[in-house]
Design a protein around this nucleic acid. Structure first.
Ligand SMILES: [Mn+2]
Ligand SMILES: [Mn+2]
Ligand SMILES: [Zn+2]
Ligand SMILES: [Zn+2]
Lengths: 145, 145
DNA sequence: AAGCTAAATTGGAATTATTCTAATTCCTGA
DNA sequence: TCAGGAATTAGAATAATTCCAATTTAGCTT
């Protein structure tokens, strides 16, 4: 059993990989599955732990390889905050991140289109931004455990 | 000779350190000086190279120690883009960064107050943002060498 | 179905930015 | 001047990530 992706996710997954001439392997499906399954912005190490429950033989190198592939296919995004380990996010809409410095938890923060336009307008003449990263840190929900 | 800080910078430096009960050493002054002297967002390694020209005996550990101190005193800011080495910036105004993926150069991008307010307004109810990071990447000035 | 070939996975070593440690040196202020 | 804390130093340690060479697998072709 590779991993129980919904038929919708499975189709997204297969299509995205085939479009790039890559193989939809069980390891890649599993990595994608665990990221979709708990949207908590896991690190590679977190993902490794979760994948091993389903595919015990999986190596750390494979987790990194799969993550690189999934990012390359646009199925997940990397999230870097300061120099802490890279986290992975399946939310493909443009959004920002908030990290609670107490709990370490990371939350998605929506960006409305008007604000997004204004942010993009900050980029000076002659520069072409392909990518933007916006993140906040501070104290999160008071006693949300 | 520690480093030729302007009398204005020297005063800022001495005051900021003394306020925290820390000593304005020649290594700290030199690290601060080279960051002010060429505002190109140098890495710790860049800074080490430049500091050694003025104070040849300086160690790498000291550069890191000084940088941590200067950041702690609010004299310089850390700039992290993806997982590349941390860079340091003496521009204390709220501003964003643009990294040219071709040249690797990093540019300051001003954020006007209106846009800054809208960005801060993205933070949801119940969260308190102490810090915000905004960065762009893409292609920079066409042939600015 | 068997064989072929390129792609993917694997375990372990290598890399690299950064931090830690313990010894030495330096300041400061009594 | 000198005692004691602060800062610096060289080198070891750490940790996330990448690299490597060997093995396995998946998707053809016969
Ligand atoms: Mn773990
Ligand atoms: Mn160098
Ligand atoms: Zn996210
Ligand atoms: Zn800057």
């Amino acid at each position: 059993m590779s991993y129980s992706l919904t038929s919708f996710s499975k189709d997204t997954f297969n299509t995205a990989l085939r479009e790039k001439g890559l193989r939809p392997t069980k390891q890649r499906a599993c990595v994608y599955g665990v990221i979709l399954g708990k949207r908590d912005h896991p690190t590679a190490d977190d993902i490794y732990d979760r994948v091993k429950r389903h595919l015990p033989g999986t190596s750390f190198a494979t987790v990194y390889n799969c993550l690189e592939t999934l990012v390359g296919c646009g199925l997940v995004k990397q999230v870097n905050m300061d120099r802490s380990p890279t986290r992975y996010c399946p939310n493909l809409t443009p959004h920002a991140h908030f990290r609670c410095t107490q709990s370490g938890k990371i939350y998605d923060v929506e960006i409305d289109n008007d604000t997004l336009s204004l942010i993009q307008a900050l980029v000076p003449e002659g520069f072409e931004a392909e990518n933007l990263d916006l993140s906040f840190s501070g104290t999160g929900k008071p006693s949300n455990n």
